[in-house]
Amino acid sequence: MKKYIIGKIILYAFLLLILGVAVTAGYRYLSKEFRKPPVTTVRPAVVKDVKTMARLCTVDIYSELPVLDTINGKVIMAVQKQRGSVSFDLEKLHVDSSGDTVRFCLPPEIVELYEATDDDAYEVIDTKSLSMFRSGTLTNAEDNTVKRRLHARSLERLYKDGVIANARKEGRQQMARLFSAFYRKPVLVTDSTPRGASRVSAQ
């Protein structure tokens, strides 16, 4: 009887040991899996297109902005570095030098505004849900909508703050001086939209 009980105790102890080893191994494996960071692989760059142009760039833009927006009951807080330029297409410039005065009309400005290529140009600080029962994770489409709104607001601000007006003034002055020196005649520049001709840009 005693031998039977001792045998059972040894058996249960052995089984417990096996179970303990299995649980420990399983725990170690699963925690390693949990801790494994995502792997990001980047494909080589592919040239999409090359365009040629002749543009006079009068203003370079660089800014760092906080991004705070709400979309579909979710809030995102981020910081974005932006880079861009204001330029004029010299090929759209029709210069009339036939008379005693050189005349031309300043073409519409080309405003390009992008996310900068600096390190951490777009840094997400936090996202949250306004509802208790909803996830605060934004989809890619929601992210893109937030960014398009930010792009539109940034462009609006460039016009409102007079950055575009200054760029047009600079463009007028540079071209007037250049053509005056080149043709050795007085120059008359027409600018029908001194505060900005268009709000069309990349994106």
Binding site: R43, V50, M53, L56, C57, L178, F182
Partner: peptide, 25 residues
């Protein structure tokens, strides 16, 4: 006046980059 005309841009290139994130467990 040519030296005062700042920067003149003559070409622009767009390049596509693709990133694959794999967080499979």
């Amino acid at each position: 006046e040519l030296t005062r005309t700042d920067r003149m841009v003559f070409a622009s290139m767009s390049v596509t980059k693709t990133a694959v994130t794999d967080d499979s467990k």
